[in-house]
Amino acid sequence: MTIIEGVLRGNVRDIARLITIVENELPEATAAMQSIFSHTGTAYTIGFTGPPGAGKSTLVDKITLQLCRQGKKIGIVAIDPSSPFSGGALLGDRIRMRDIITEQEVFIRSVSTRGSMGGLSRAAGDIAKILDAAGKDVVIIETVGVGQDEVDIFKTADTSVLVLMPGAGDDIQSIKAGIMEIADIFVVNKADREGADGLITSIRQMLDLNTAPGPWRPPIIKTSATQNEGIEELLKAVQEHREFLTISGSLAARRKERLRTEIIRLVERRVSRLVQSQIKQNGRFEKLVEKVAAREEDPYSCVERIVKPLEQK
């Protein structure tokens, strides 16, 4: 049995290996992704984002447990930042996902950003596709808790949940407007702590300020993940958003947009690699750098010299 067949049957070892192949960009990665693509598109993707320590992993744990009880198969991609110095990473989201660790139909993969910005890892989208092809009904992606600019998730998930907590994130100004505008559902977690209602009020005020509100008004759900409170309500909100997307036709549009972005990104990567290999191949490049350093030539004409011949090909 090939690894692809194994993945399509939901074999844990094969899913895990294919994810490694894709993460490390091994030579067989592209062919593998090509053969599984036609088996993707059935899983519903939910993204969880928000500041560090807001309770994303704990929420994912509780929600997944509920979904398991409904007979759903769940894949989870949990992303933590990589160290800019060593390239290594401490991946600790599993510590808070203990209720679901031995559920038969749950597959959790911890990944590091490997230097990517935007809260995701480069391979996150492909990993989600692998879990989708492996038969998962729902794929949940937890972004790194950078808080300010993890916007990439909104391009990767069908429903994006922004998790906030009272105290640290009290000051709603500290969350970039862009994120607030794109979230499909707000969660105020740690409702057992003081300040939750105040935070809800300020989110509501911010939503009211929106002068051009879309047809979907993001609900604000109050949860206390550690106490398992508000989980049903959150799941209901996700379900409602899903229905809204489906009925309005936005789900298909969103997914198409996502694929458009992905194709462009892939082309860019490919072209950029091509350019780099061309540059490095002919030793002329180092000589050009010397010239620029000696102020004999400026960087812009240097770029002209490099790109012109490539454009003519």
Partner: peptide, 28 residues
Amino acid sequence: LRDAGMEVIYTGLRQTPEQIVTAALQED
């Protein structure tokens, strides 16, 4: 291990052998 450039998955205290093995296989 992280400072040596590795990705380190830490799962917390009091894990059963089944939990450890399940996690190790999924994480490859």
